[in-house]
Structures are given as C-alpha cells and as structure tokens.
C-alpha cells in the first residue's frame, strides 16, 4: 500500500472540487473493496476523499419510485421495510451478498462500483487487460472456472461487476443519479451504466472523472413487488455467484403480463435478458415457458474450457427463480 492523503469532506461540492484538484484521487465510502486492492498494490491513489459525511442518505418514496441515497449501507437497505415490500429481489440481493460485517460498512454507491474478482485482475503479477491495458488476458485459456460466458471478448472474460445488487437493480429498471464536479446532476438508467469489455475492458462504466453516484431510484411496478433473487455459489454465504437470477413476474390468471429477467455471475456485466422477457410476456406461467425463456437467455453464451457448466447452471437458476416467484 502506498502512502496517501486522507481528506474527509461533508459536501458533494467540496468532494468534487477536491477531486478536480487531484484527478488521481478517489472517493472512499465503506472502503470494503478499495482498501483490499490498495493493500495488495493493485491500485494506488495519492489521496482518498472520504465522502461518508455527505448528505446522501435516506430511503424515500418519490413520484419516480423508491429513492435510495448512495451512502445508505447495504444492510440498512436490504432490511428496509419499503424495499422488502416493494422490491423483494433487491432486498434479497443485498442480504445474500458479502458478510454481515461487510454489509454494515459497504455503501450502495460503492457497491455498484465494486471491481471484478477475476484472479488474474486481483494479482498484479499476472497480465490483465483490465488492469494494464494491452498486457493480455491469461484467463482466456487459464483458470476461468468462475468467469463469464456472456458479453465476453478476446480481451476480457471477467465479471466487471461480480456482485448482486446491480443485477436486481438492472431487472427493475433502476435509474442512477450522478453529480459532476460542477454540481450538475444527470439521471442514467442502470441498463446503460456498465460497459461491455470489448477491446477496452479497463473502461467499466460511463462515470465521468470526478462524477459521484448520489442516489438510486427504482420505479414501482407489479413485477417488482412479485420478484426474487436466487444466487448459486460454492458455499452457502460469503461467496460470489456462479450464477444468479433476479426475476419479477406480474401474473394474472395464469398468464404473465409483464416479466423482468436479469442474470448475475455469467455476464461480463450484469445481464438483462430481453429475449427471455419477450418469451415470458403474454405466455402461460408454466415450466415449459420458463425453460424456453432460460434457453433464450443463454443462447449467445460463449463458454471457455472450465466454465461450460454455467450454461446449464444459469438456465436452471433462472427456471428455479421463475418457479419460485410464480408460486408466491
């Protein structure tokens, strides 16, 4: 870990100003991912701008849906009664993530910016296009057991976002509120927040330098009320998903009126499946429909040597999640 300056701030204006003065600086909230990476010299920042005192908290009902401040903690949001009632999948995605200790520290904004768990990214001794552009991607022919099968490229097959929350937010059309150094806000749907790796896997999202995530808003919807998040992993807790599914169904008299499907653990970015949603919408809520939707969701999969199992696992995970939500 390098030496750095630590600067607590209490307004977005001051935070973004500091960041403008020192472009190489970074914001820090819960620090649950940042310090891990600094300790093993994966990243170096001359300055950490602590934004924990910024007034970016609060979970409130708005005309656009439920607005969650970016500095709310994962555990508080996951257990919040409005989240549990209106967006069960979001609540479950938070409470199935990380450990109790980490959930108590990690902020919602920080969670959306967590970095990949690819072993090649996490060890500076390996080449990694995401970490050092152009250095190579040993994961293509190496230990890719846990890595992505959708949205991959020859440059990168890592899950840019390995976690859970964004998968649920993606399913339910959440919108991020971002604020830049001039204090100007813009609203960006999470569907266009993450960027496919392509030839530039070091570019992970559309945040501009210095821009802060200040809030997440999730629109109200019947399919969000009737939703679930299912996570499959190699131990029961404190592990990243091999495959996960955030699904929501609005079923009336056995027919699906609207459906939302997003997958985690299998895409280089959280993976929404309009193909699956198209099959589900207007179809009877049966296992046959669910299996057809799952097959459609994974149709473009490109597994490598050790992650072929994910094609079947992700389909089964999706089918099970749809079954679970259809019977509630």
């Amino acid at each position: 870990m390098n030496n750095f300056t630590y600067t607590p701030t209490n307004s977005a204006k001051e935070a973004t100003r500091l960041r403008r003065e020192t472009p190489a600086a970074t914001y820090v909230a819960g620090a649950t991912t940042l310090l891990d990476m600094m300790k093993v010299n994966l990243v170096e920042y001359p300055q950490l701008i602590d934004i924990n005192a910024l007034p970016l908290t609060g979970i409130e009902q708005t005309a656009n849906g439920l607005r969650i401040g970016a500095l709310e903690r994962m555990s508080d949001v996951g257990e919040h009664r409005l989240v549990v009632a209106q967006y069960p999948a979001v609540s479950e995605s938070l409470l199935l993530a990380a450990s109790a200790q980490l959930r108590n520290m990690a902020s919602i904004g920080g969670n959306l910016l967590q970095r990949t768990r690819c072993g090649y990214f996490r060890d500076a001794a390996f080449p990694c296009n995401k970490r050092v552009p152009g250095s190579g991607c040993p994961a293509q022919h190496g230990d890719n057991h846990g890595l992505a099968i959708l949205g991959t490229s020859e440059a990168c097959i890592a899950q840019t976002y390995p976690g859970d929350l964004s998968v649920a937010l993606l399913a339910f059309d959440a919108v991020l509120t971002l604020e830049n150094a001039k204090g100007k806000q813009r609203r960006v749907p999470i569907t266009s927040f993450y960027v496919l790796p392509g030839q530039t896997p070091h570019q992970e999202n559309i945040l501009e330098p210095g821009e802060l995530i200040v809030a997440v808003t999730i629109p109200a919807a019947e399919h969000a009320r009737r939703s679930t998040y299912l996570k499959v992993r190699e131990r029961t807790s404190y592990a990243y998903a091999l495959a996960s599914a955030a699904v929501g169904l609005d079923v009336q008299a056995g027919t699906i009126r609207s459906a939302r499907v997003a997958l985690g653990g299998v895409g280089t970015i959280p993976w929404r499946s309009p193909e699956a949603e198209k099959i589900l919408t207007g179809a009877p809520a049966t296992d046959e429909t669910f299996r057809a939707a799952a097959a459609a969701a994974l149709r473009g999969a490109q597994p490598r040597e050790h992650n072929g199992y994910k094609v079947q696992l992700a389909q089964n995970t999706l089918v099970r999640a749809l079954q679970n939500v259809a019977t509630t």
């Binding site: 450990s99 768990r117 072993g119 090649y120 996490r122 060890d123 001794a125 390996f126 040993p138 022919h141 190496g142 230990d143 057991h145 190699e234 131990r235 029961t236 807790s237 404190y238 592990a239 990243y240």
Partner: peptide, 25 residues
C-alpha cells in the same frame, strides 16, 4: 487452491477466493 498452468501461480490466494466453510455450511 487453483493454479494457473502457464504461470505456475495461484489464482485464488486469499480468503475470498479460497473457500473455507462458514457457519451456514
């Protein structure tokens, strides 16, 4: 503990990557 064949180096050498059982297991 997994090892990259080409580099003969571990790819999951920490407690997030190397899974030991937790209480729920």
């Amino acid at each position: 503990t997994n090892r990259d064949e080409q580099y003969a180096r571990y790819t999951n050498a920490d407690l997030a990557g190397y899974h030991v059982p937790i209480n729920a297991d």
